[in-house]
């Protein structure tokens, strides 16, 4: 049987990949996708703990996390569209007008 540690290491690896994507990629869509990856890693942790502790709390919290991720993705993408209309690029380095 796969133990809890297996799942935790897996979710740690996925979380790291997501974080690396958010910090290193220069494409707004890929940054948003990496945020989704991070949320998924957290979901996996919740469900793994829920299973190994024998309660359904993990699944319920994941249910809400998925909902919140949906809302955040929608607003994030709307922002990307609005930004794209101003400057015809998806590179976050191009939006420097508010820099002090």
């Amino acid at each position: 049987m796969a133990e809890l540690n297996h799942y935790l290491i897996l979710s740690g690896v996925l979380f790291t990949i997501g974080t690396a994507g958010v910090l290193l990629r220069r494409n707004l869509i890929t940054v948003l996708l990496s945020i989704e990856v991070m949320l998924n890693a957290v979901n996996l942790t919740f469900i793994a703990f829920g299973h190994f502790l024998g309660s359904s709390d993990g699944q319920i919290i994941v249910f809400f996390v998925i909902t919140v991720a949906a809302a955040e993705a929608a607003v994030g993408l709307a922002l990307v569209i609005a930004l794209f209309r101003h400057v015809e690029t998806l590179n976050p380095d191009a939006f420097r007008q508010l820099r002090g």
Binding site: A2, Y7, L10, I29, L32, L33, E36, N40, N43, L44, I47, A48, G50, H51, G58, Q59, V62, F63, I66, T67, A69, A70, A73, A74, L77
Partner: peptide
């Protein structure tokens, strides 16, 4: 993996909502 962890409902919800709706939006 969720199905292996005895969470078939969340697995299907993930496919419906995440993979089926949010990713279509992306």
């Amino acid at each position: 993996l969720y199905v292996l962890l005895n969470a078939p409902f969340v697995a299907v919800i993930q496919i419906i909502v995440y993979a089926g709706a949010i990713m279509v939006l992306f």
